[in-house]
Design a protein around this nucleic acid. Structure first.
Lengths: 194, 194
DNA sequence: CTCAAATCTTGACAATGAAAACATTTAAAG
DNA sequence: CTTTAAATGTTTTCATTGTCAAGATTTGAG
């Protein structure tokens, strides 16, 4: 019944970690399955026994990204639990933007085109949990009936800003830091009008 | 002084068109430089004389995407020029969402990671023009001083929804069509609170 | 201990982006 | 018109990639 049954250690876990490090360190074009295997110290075909494909591996990394994402937003919510629902949502929004800034590659994977990565069961599960978490925070402001539409709005608004920043599509005369607080503030205001 | 100086026709233009068609027809993973050359009826190395790299070609396609995008939003603005600024912004938002829906691959390119595509001068120029267009529409509601922050907010909000839809990250219990109008409505409400 | 399953390696394959060497067409200069 | 250099295309080559198949090794169940 041992869970780590073979000589190398837990290669599956090592590959996931190596993949996350590679995504953090290298330009995305240089992140290959073989490069990840290299970093894990195994042959280029070894991953096949743990992931059916490159897309499968990336899907798992994205799922783990959502798990960390949930923790980051959960911490922000926890630390502001004495405050109003709106302030808590602001705190979560800041945590969201910080996560995207600090984990650009994984974040890009989490919300990227489905083609490059498999929709693994754990990815579906983790992304759904992230959604539920946000919907709960919004429900405390709007009530449960309006929560789905409110959560969609909040997520769209914060996610859009993250993406525009990451893709460098905001014009130079827009101050990135100032724009974040303004955006979050307007977002909350919009939610009030729901 | 002829502008089309060689025997094949205007290969540069043909490659761009072939690339756009390939992006529209094929899964993104199958869109390669060689596939595009194949579709244009030339050897796989021919593109080198018109585009320094695959990323360069994709950058140009993204730039042309922005040009079409500008036209689409401009048409929406034109058709609603008798209406209020807010209604015009709503019309532009709908056009935005429609463009993203109808051109998923090019749209993904336009706002995708910079790594896969070069920031060519025409891409910088076209994306900046798109921004200016939106900022003008927002300025008619908020006044010029608040326009940059308002435009950032509006773009974030609509862009985020587009991305979440394209990446299929909205949970199944959220009605895609209903959510669009709601989102745009809240967006305008938020702008009022600016 | 035996032996089959799980795990890992080696070797192969087709496809890719890029670059170099070469051929052809174009058009400018005399 | 002829010469000639630049622009445009092709062929060939190269390193790299994801995937697969075949073989080797380790593991653990019986």
């Amino acid at each position: 019944m041992t869970v780590k049954p073979y000589h190398h250690g837990d290669l599956r876990e090592q590959l996931l970690i190596a993949g996350e490090l590679a995504l953090a360190e290298l330009p995305i074009a240089k992140v290959s399955l073989r490069e990840i295997a290299r970093r894990a110290g195994v042959s280029h075909a070894a991953p096949k026994h743990h992931f059916t494909s490159m897309a499968d591996l990336l899907g798992e990394i994205a799922a783990r990204g959502f798990d960390k994402f949930i923790v980051a937003l959960g911490n922000a919510a926890e630390q502001s639990k004495r405050q109003t629902g709106e302030d808590r949502l602001l705190a979560m929004g800041r945590a969201y933007l910080r996560f995207a800034d600090q984990n650009p590659a994984v974040y890009g994977l989490m919300f990227g085109q489905v083609s490059k990565m498999s929709m693994t069961p754990s990815l579906t599960k983790s992304s759904y949990e992230a959604w539920t978490q946000l919907e709960s925070a919004v429900a405390q402001i709007t009530g449960p009936t309006q929560a789905p539409i409110g959560a969609t709005y909040v997520w769209s608004s914060v996610h859009g800003l993250s993406m525009l920043k990451a893709a460098r599509r905001l014009p130079p005369h827009v101050s990135l830091h100032a724009v974040e607080e303004d955006n979050l503030r307007i977002m909350v205001a919009g939610l009030r009008e729901l």
